[in-house]
Design a binder for these strands. Structure first.
Length: 210
DNA sequence: CCGAGGATTGACT
DNA sequence: GTCAATCCTCGGG
C-alpha cells in the first residue's frame, strides 16, 4: 500500500491544454487492474517517466493532422479524458490519452515508466518467468514495452480514464524535474520532428532514448 | 481491391 | 550501424 495519500485524476483533468497535461503526467502513477493466476484482482502501478504531446490539426506528426478523420482517429476528436490505443508496425500497441476539448484532436503518448515498489509482486514474478528477455523487470523504456507489461491493447480504445475502465491515473504529489526533448520516431514529419514536445523526467534511467 | 508504410523493438554485422 | 517482424490503416485506382 502507498504511504502517501493519492488522488485519482478525473477525466476532466485531461481537458486542459495538451502540453500542460503531457508535462503534468510525468511523475504520475499509471494504474492497471489485472486478474492474477489465482483469480484475485491486483493493481499494477507504474510511475510515468516520459510522455509526448501530439497537438492536432497543425502537427504533421499527429494522426489527426490537417483534420484527418478516420475510423481509427475518430476518438481523437472526443473531449479529453478517454484512451486512444492503436497498433503500430503490426506488433506494438501504443497508449495515448486524449486531451483538450471536443473537436480539438490532440493526445499524449505514454512512452516510458517504472513499476513502483507497492506493485503486486506475484504478477511481477509471473511476468518475469514468462518473458526472460526482460533485463530490467521494473523499467519500461519504450511505449511498446510499457503496454505489453500492463497488458493494454485495443480493448481500451475509447474508454474513459477512470478506475471503472481498469486503467487510471493517480497523483501522489510526486513532481520530478522535467526536461524537454524532440519527439522520437517521426522523421516523416518534416520540421515538426524538432519540436520540443517530449517531456522526460530529467536524467531518469527508464527513459526510452537519449 | 491493392500497395505502402508505420508515434517500435530486438537481433545481428 | 542495418534490418526483419507483422498486420492494421489509409489512400489511391
Amino acid at each position: 500500500m502507498s504511504t502517501a495519500s493519492s488522488t485519482v485524476l478525473e477525466p476532466a483533468w485531461f481537458t486542459r491544454p495538451t502540453c500542460v497535461v503531457a508535462a503534468d503526467l510525468v511523475g504520475k502513477v499509471l494504474c492497471r487492474k489485472l486478474t492474477d493466476s489465482d483469480g484475485s484482482e491486483k493493481v499494477l502501478r507504474m510511475r510515468i517517466s516520459e510522455t509526448e504531446a501530439y497537438i492536432g490539426l497543425e502537427d504533421p506528426a499527429c494522426h489527426s493532422h490537417a483534420g484527418t478523420r478516420t475510423e481509427r482517429t475518430e476518438i481523437m476528436y472526443a473531449q479529453g479524458g478517454v484512451f486512444y490505443v492503436y497498433l503500430t508496425y503490426g506488433i506494438h500497441y501504443l497508449l495515448n490519452m486524449i486531451t483538450a476539448v471536443a473537436e480539438s484532436p490532440e493526445s499524449v503518448l505514454i512512452r516510458a515508466g517504472f513499476l513502483t515498489e507497492d506493485s503486486d509482486r506475484l504478477i511481477d514474478e509471473q511476468y518475469q518467468s514468462a518473458d526472460k528477455q526482460l533485463t530490467h523487470p521494473k523499467q519500461f523504456a519504450g511505449p511498446g514495452k510499457l503496454t505489453k507489461r500492463l497488458q493494454i491493447d485495443r480493448d481500451l480504445y475509447g474508454k474513459s480514464i477512470e478506475p471503472t475502465s481498469d486503467v487510471w491515473i493517480e497523483d501522489d504529489g510526486c513532481a520530478p524535474p522535467i526536461s524537454l526533448r524532440p519527439r522520437i520516431g517521426i522523421d516523416y514529419a518534416g520540421d515538426a520532428k524538432d519540436w520540443l514536445l517530449r517531456y522526460v523526467w530529467t536524467d531518469h534511467p527508464s527513459l526510452s532514448k537519449k
